[in-house]
Structures are given as structure tokens and as C-alpha cells.
Write a protein that binds this DNA or RNA. Structure first.
Lengths: 211, 211
DNA sequence: CACATATCAAACTGAACAGTACGGTTTGGT
DNA sequence: ACCAAACCGTACTGTTCAGTTTGATATGTG
């Protein structure tokens, strides 16, 4: 039996710790998370915590890294080839994309994740690097690619794709930010009704349509 | 001599404390700010701190309240009647407005302020309330008013003003967010060159123009 | 000057908390 | 069954920090 081997057992324990730690970190950030609370939430002794992670900081970085990777996987799904062959197809694609993103942001813990990253990046610099690597890319390139494809097929005019992307993504995000990111006691943010998104898309299409 | 009177002297001391505390809070948030550091930064004894404020939390709320009020005053300046009588006037107005907002956000401590509010609103609920009261209004109503005026004068078409406002404001803000809000060591965000903003405005005007 | 009020520096108190030590218990392989 | 590694609960250590206490000094007022 070798030492420092990643057995099935140890992998499971590590995952168990991650799950508990995720809950605690998302709820209260770095400062608000005590190692006792994490151990309890994970159903693990504090000692074991320190067998798998050298410090609380290292544990947090690992948790955020995992969450951001998962989020990236989800984005990859969003990236799946979407039809942009005609104007009505593009309209449908953009509307659905926007609704999915808004839904994901309001449904899941992504807003809490963003809040924690924003809150703790000054104290835990590694977090800022994670953000830059995974999020800064974000939804924007996906939309930009869609628009470029549509432009190449002359579904939309020869517009400035970068500006168009910013307008669309920014417009959609105003439904969640800035209010969603600040914790206002007990008032969860809701995604706007599809109808609103449709009106936004329609307006957007006026800007990029061939005249 | 009455007790609990707000003399000139006490007003000055309170302001002195606020200035020091502002620096420390913006730099490190609630958890990162020690009362010793605040006292030192303000050039005041710790004791005096507690004469003017009952707790660290109360001090922070006061500091943020002051900063947000000041920010609101600045917005009031932005709100000053701007010409929207013709399409070229509207273009100029929107471009200038966007540039000013971006400049203010990158120049000043507003990004740090936003970061602190986002970071600490879960722990200090009063902060969330301040945010909701002052920021949630924000730039959006100003732009909405501009657009309504322009629409009434038939400078732009009968568009959905709410959607249009979101598209414009959101598009502008993508230049600062999300990257500006996360502390990435030593890389300050810069406002985009005016030319970029102009292209965004032009695209926007295509969306809202009378056909 | 006498007296009150404001301020200061420094030391103290009590609580919270990261990380460790320890002795007992479970688990899984052989 | 036997052993070793993994794990558990609890208690401990050292530090950090909000808020207080103390006792001295400055400031201004009648």
C-alpha cells in the first residue's frame, strides 16, 4: 500500500468535504466560514479537514475552482451549435439563450458564487486569477460567435459585432444586476418573463438587421 | 452647555473619523478593517471613535451612507437637462453621458465602494437597504427620461423605452463589469476610448431610430 | 485660576477562531 | 482474527480583535 495515493476512498472523502465547504463558503464567504462549521456541514472531523487541505484558504480556492469549472461546463452546453440561418431562427436562438442564462443565474448559486468571489478576491488573490481565467471569457464570446455567423450568412447587417455583443449581453444582464448581486434580506431576484426578453431581442434585432 | 449638542468641534471630529474610516473600509471591507487601523488612519484615539459611534458596524453604515449620498449628488449633476432635440444632439448627449459615467467609475473609489457593498451586505443587512434606496435607481432612470423626451419629440421611434434603456446602460457597463469589480492584483480597469463608446451609441441609435 | 469637557495612549478583557494534539473507534485489506 | 490506516470527538494553544477601563493631558469657558 503506497502512501499519498489517490484511492477511491480518499476521493470520496475529498468530495464530501468539498460539498460541505461549498455550502458554508457560499453562504458566508471566507471570513464568515469557520472551519468548525465546514467540518460539521461536511459531516467530517476537523482533523480530517486538515488531512486533505493544508489551510482554510487552500480549501476555499479548491471549492471555487471546482464551481467555476462546473459553470464552464454548463457554458459549453450553451455553446452548442445554435441555428442562426434566418432572422426568425436568430431571434429564437437569442431569446432562448438569454432566458437560459437568466434562469441559471437566478435558480442556482451562481449569484452567491459571484458575490463571494467579488467579496474575497482582495484577501485571497488566487481567486481573482480564477475569475479572470474562467468568467472574463463568459457568455460574451458565445454571443459574439453567434452574431458573426449570422453576419456571414447575411442574416444581419455588417455591424460592429463587438458593440452589438456588448449591447445584447449587457441588456440582458441588467435584469439581474445590480440588484441580484447585493444581498437584500429575503428578496430573491426573479428572472423576467419571457415576453420582456422577447422585446429586448426585437429591439436588438432592429439595430443589427440589414436595412 | 447642553449635552449631546452637535457643536462645530464635534462635527469636525466626526468628519475626521469618517475620512479615516472611509479609507480603511474601502481598502478592506468590514472584516478587513480593524478599529485600531481606523483610529490610526483618522488620527484619533480608539476611545474617541467609540464616543462618536457605538459600534464598528454603525460607523461603517454611516460611512457608506455618506459615500452613497455623495454619489447621488454627482448623479444629480449628470441628470442636468441635456439636449435631445435632434438626432445628432441625442447622439452627443448619450456619448458624453456614457463617457462620464465610465470615467467616474474608473477614476474614483466607486468600484471599491461597490465591491465593499456587495461583499458585506450579507453580514451587515443595513447596507443592502442603503444600496436598494440609492443605487437601484441609478443611471437607468436618467437615460430612460432622456429617451422618453427624445421619443416625444419624435427624434427616435416609438420604441420600448425600458428595453432600450437596458440595452444602452447594459452595453456601457460591460466595459467596466465584470472585470472591474473583482480585485485582480495591480491591474486597474481603464475606461474605453471614446471611439468605442461612439460605435456603441451609433449601433444603439440604429435600434431606436425612426425608420 | 478653577472646573468641565474632549481627547489621548496604553493596557486590559472576553470572545472567536485557525490550526494542533491526543486518545479512542471504525474500516478494509490480508 | 489481526493490523494499519483513516477517521472521530474533544480539548488545547496562540492569536486577533471589538469594545472597555484607566489615568493622564489638552482645551476652552466663566
Amino acid at each position: 500500500m503506497m502512501a499519498s495515493q489517490e484511492t477511491a476512498r480518499s476521493r470520496a472523502k475529498r468530495a464530501q468535504i468539498q460539498r460541505g465547504a461549498t455550502r458554508v463558503f457560499l453562504a458566508g464567504g471566507f471570513a464568515g466560514a469557520t472551519t468548525d462549521a465546514i467540518a460539521k456541514a461536511a459531516g467530517v472531523s476537523k482533523q480530517t479537514l486538515y488531512v486533505y487541505y493544508r489551510t482554510k484558504e487552500q480549501l476555499m480556492v479548491d471549492v471555487l475552482d471546482t464551481l467555476l469549472s462546473r459553470l464552464n461546463r454548463d457554458h459549453a452546453v450553451l455553446d452548442a451549435e445554435r441555428p442562426t440561418g434566418s432572422l426568425s431562427e436568430l431571434r429564437e436562438t437569442l431569446t432562448t439563450l438569454a432566458c437560459e442564462v437568466l434562469q441559471a443565474l437566478t435558480d442556482s448559486d451562481y449569484l452567491a458564487l459571484a458575490r463571494v468571489i467579488i467579496a474575497d478576491s482582495p484577501q485571497v488573490p488566487e481567486i481573482g486569477r480564477l475569475w479572470a481565467q474562467t468568467i472574463t471569457g463568459g457568455v460574451r464570446p458565445i454571443v459574439a460567435e453567434l452574431l458573426e455567423r449570422a453576419r456571414d450568412h447575411e442574416v444581419i447587417g455588417a455591424v460592429d459585432v463587438e458593440a452589438a455583443t456588448r449591447m445584447f449581453v449587457g441588456g440582458v444582464l441588467t435584469y439581474i444586476l445590480p440588484d441580484g448581486i447585493v444581498a437584500t434580506a429575503g428578496k430573491p431576484v426573479a428572472a423576467p418573463p419571457r415576453e420582456r426578453v422577447e422585446r429586448l431581442v426585437d429591439l436588438f434585432l432592429r439595430a443589427v438587421s440589414t436595412d
